[in-house]
């Protein structure tokens, strides 16, 4: 069992997300940076969707009463076990009675901590992911707080030290070109509005959270008003009356009534989720075929990477 000594700004228990419940109004949640989340799990021998912790701006301190393996990934931060500095993106052994301390990341926003066997949390609506706005998932729908106790599931028998190759560790950028699939009301935006949108650079505002990232910059005029609410996909870029784009992310509301110019590729949503207020964002249109090619390529690269880990350590 792990006991929370310091909870950090916002530390959430999460699995891959809650799907199939949109009809009840429940959003998907899940890790904002799925690659970092999956790798943390993978490196401690878990299924990639096991329950782990997502920390926004780090700051978590834990004490453990069991000897096991953990992995920290995502936004780069200093972390220690009993005051000894530890590496990220690799499995690290922790012993009963030791204390784990994570600092605030230098760049990026979201770091992950996975434990061998995963955290043992009863799923709600098929998932353990915590959605604070709904009060569902995790421990009673809350973020972690001091004195919370986290049980751990059965560990994989043949665990050993594993590390992600240095070259495969993502660098989190504050300047991003997000690839966007024109979709939804794209045709209803004038050619001039679309041109403004694709040629402008936006800044990430302070209203940037798990629900969505509000951007600031060139206003995108929209003629569409009085829309009926409709289902919102991950990455949908909503243009409200003030013309300032909002990229809707994991904890978005399931339906909404603002016009949307398209949807950001999920791979790029994950990069945006690591970007801090003040980050510089622009958009590039891609076709559906390009989007699917990019998704398949990314999946294939990840599988190659995991196979290589196996051959190094297996």
């Amino acid at each position: 069992m792990f006991t929370v000594l310091k909870a950090g700004l916002m530390t959430l228990l999460t699995d891959a997300g809650r799907f199939g419940q949109a009809k009840l109004g429940l959003t998907q949640g899940g890790p904002m940076d799925p690659f970092a989340f999956e790798l943390a799990n993978y490196l401690v021998g878990n299924q990639s969707d096991s329950t782990a912790l997502e920390m926004t701006l780090g700051g978590l301190h834990l004490k453990t009463d069991l000897t096991t393996w953990v992995c920290v990934s995502g936004a780069p931060l200093n972390w220690r076990i009993d005051d000894v500095q530890q590496p990220m993106w690799q499995s690290v052994q922790v012993r009963a009675g030791q204390t784990i301390e994570l600092d605030v990341p230098e760049t990026g926003l979201r770091s992950y901590l996975a434990v061998a066997g995963g955290f043992a949390i009863a799923p709600s609506f098929g998932s353990t992911t915590t959605v604070l706005r709904e009060g569902i998932g995790g421990l009673d729908g809350n973020k972690l707080k001091v004195d919370d106790q986290l049980c751990v599931g059965p560990m994989h028998a043949t665990l050993r030290k594993q590390a992600l190759p240095e070259t495969a560790i993502p660098q989190y950028q504050q300047e991003l070109v997000l690839r966007l699939i024109p979709a939804y009301q794209y045709q209803e935006f004038s050619a001039a509005s679309r041109a403004l949108f694709f040629t402008s650079t936006y800044e990430v505002s302070h209203q940037a959270d798990r629900m969505g990232y509000r951007l600031q910059g060139q206003k995108v005029p929209s003629q569409t008003t009085n829309m009926l609410s409709e289902g919102i996909a991950l990455g949908a870029v909503q243009i409200p009356a003030d013309g300032q784009p909002i990229v809707l992310l994991n904890d978005r509301q399931t339906i909404g009534g603002y016009p949307k110019i398209g949807s950001v590729l999920s791979l790029d949503c994950a990069k945006l989720a690591q970007c801090r207020p003040g980050g510089k964002i622009s958009f590039e249109p891609i076709s559906m075929e390009q989007a699917h090619n990019l998704m398949l390529l990314s999946r294939s690269r990840k599988q190659n990477l995991l196979a290589r880990l196996d051959s190094i350590h297996g």
């Binding site: 799907f19 409709e230 399931t254």
Partner: peptide, 13 residues
């Protein structure tokens, strides 16, 4: 993956 019905539409994921 999911269906989101609404007033005059269904989002199919």
């Amino acid at each position: 993956i999911d269906l989101t019905p609404s007033y005059h539409s269904i989002l199919i994921q």
